[in-house]
């Protein structure tokens, strides 16, 4: 299942400064949710395990990180329960970095 994952707003520090990741997710369409995606990111994309707490807190995306699914606020898409679709773009933007 193909998808694009983006880390913006300075969040690329957790992935060796790579902002855009084109990935082939090991899930079947309809079977996986954002929860699985978060686990996938922690296991496969974050370079240094020490950076995992920068990204997640209590098993979900840390408050202060804005999540967009195909450019739509994930709060409108069911947040962690959103069912992943092939071709999706997931954008994680840190709002915490200096203004």
């Amino acid at each position: 299942m193909k998808a694009k994952i983006e880390f913006l707003g300075g969040l690329d520090v957790i992935s060796s400064h790579v902002r855009e990741h084109k990935v082939n997710l090991p899930f079947e369409e309809g079977d996986a949710t954002i929860r699985d995606l978060i686990r996938y990111i922690c296991e496969n994309i974050i370079t240094d395990p020490k950076d995992i707490p920068v990204f997640i807190e209590d098993d979900s995306v840390r408050p202060g990180i804005l999540v967009l699914i195909n450019d739509t606020d994930w709060e409108l898409e069911g947040m962690e329960e959103y069912v992943l679709e092939s071709g999706d773009v997931y954008t994680f933007t840190s709002t915490l970095h200096g203004g």
Binding site: V13, L66, D71, T91, T93, T95, H97, G98, G99
Partner: peptide, 24 residues
Amino acid sequence: YQKEIVLYAHYKKLDYFSTECTYA
């Protein structure tokens, strides 16, 4: 809200810099 500022910048594709200060 910060969230709306970030969204505005994102949707309008504004050119901004987002690296944490090296000393911070």
